[in-house]
Design a protein around this nucleic acid. Structure first.
Length: 263
DNA sequence: AGGTGTTTACCGCGCC
DNA sequence: GGCGCGGTAAACACCT
């Protein structure tokens, strides 16, 4: 029996859960992260069924994004204004589909309490960076960026961490980073503006960033732009290590049931 | 105002 | 029957 192609679904409801549809959309994007509106667009572009009753399924999809730990909300970069955050997949969730098939999930992806806490702390720090960034841009004295207790910001730590009894306010997972230990740096604009010592040694190239959006309303001073790009790149580094091909391959571009894990 | 995000509740279905 | 999962509805808060 031939497998259904993307087109053959027509107005029929595709056999994918909202989690699978969202994962498809995220994986299909160059940065492995999309705003909600782009996830909607991906789905309606490919599956005509979802061009109707948009309020119903979009509500369900939003519910899934918030409810499932496999989806991570990443604050927008300050130089990319717009509504809503970006959504990406938690790297530990990339194997949640059995044999790589989007038709079947192994089990619900659930973060441990400590992991969730440290992830939230890190993302809150990024959001705080945005506020400080914009305040500084507006000429106001910058608020104390970073975590409320003044702890240091260690990019990517949360995404690579394993379950551990460590308190969330002191994540120390540098040893688990792919490139080896990374020096901690203060999570302030000034610290991020400083030259990064890691760049001086041979290392894997940073994640590719897309060209700047042409409609950025306020041209930012380049150093701040660099700082914004840097923190996003560092955040995404952990994700890209886990999520990007060659881990995953489209088996058939005409359908979406066979993203498969490469061995 | 409308889009986005969170949370709670309920229901149906499949599996054990 | 209990449980886990997926889908849906709805209320509410927040943000642009």
């Amino acid at each position: 029996m031939p497998r259904p192609t993307r087109e053959s679904y027509g107005d029929q409801k595709p056999p994918f859960s909202y989690i699978a549809l969202t994962a498809m959309a995220i994986w299909s994007s160059p940065e492995r992260m999309l705003p909600l509106s782009e996830i909607y667009r991906f789905i309606t572009d490919r599956f005509p069924y979802y061009r109707r009753n948009t309020q119903r399924w979009q509500n369900s999809l939003r519910h899934n994004l918030s409810f499932n730990d496999c989806f991570v909300k990443v604050p927008r970069r300050p130089d990319r204004p717009g509504k809503g955050a970006y959504w990406t997949l938690h790297p530990q969730a990339f194997d949640m589909f059995e044999n790589g098939s989007l038709l079947r999930r192994r089990k619900r992806f659930k973060l441990h309490k400590g992991e969730k806490d440290s992830l939230n702390a890190e993302l809150a720090a990024l959001a705080s960076f945005n506020r400080a960034f914009l305040a500084r841009q507006a000429g106001a004295p910058p608020p104390q960026a970073g975590l409320p207790n003044g702890s240091m910001y260690n990019p990517s730590s949360t995404f690579i961490s394993r379950p551990s009894p460590e308190p969330p306010e002191a994540p120390d997972t540098a040893a688990l980073l792919p490139q080896g230990p990374r020096p901690r740096r203060a999570f302030t604009i000034d610290a991020l503006l400083e030259p990064d010592p890691r760049r001086s040694s041979p290392s894997p190239p940073p994640p590719q960033l897309p060209p700047q959006l042409p409609h950025c309303p306020l041209p930012l001073p380049p150093p701040y732009l660099l700082a914004a790009q840097r923190y996003h790149a560092e955040l995404l580094a952990g994700l890209q290590q886990s999520c990007l091909p060659p881990l995953w391959t489209w088996r058939d571009t005409s359908q979406f049931s066979h993203y498969t894990l490469n061995s």
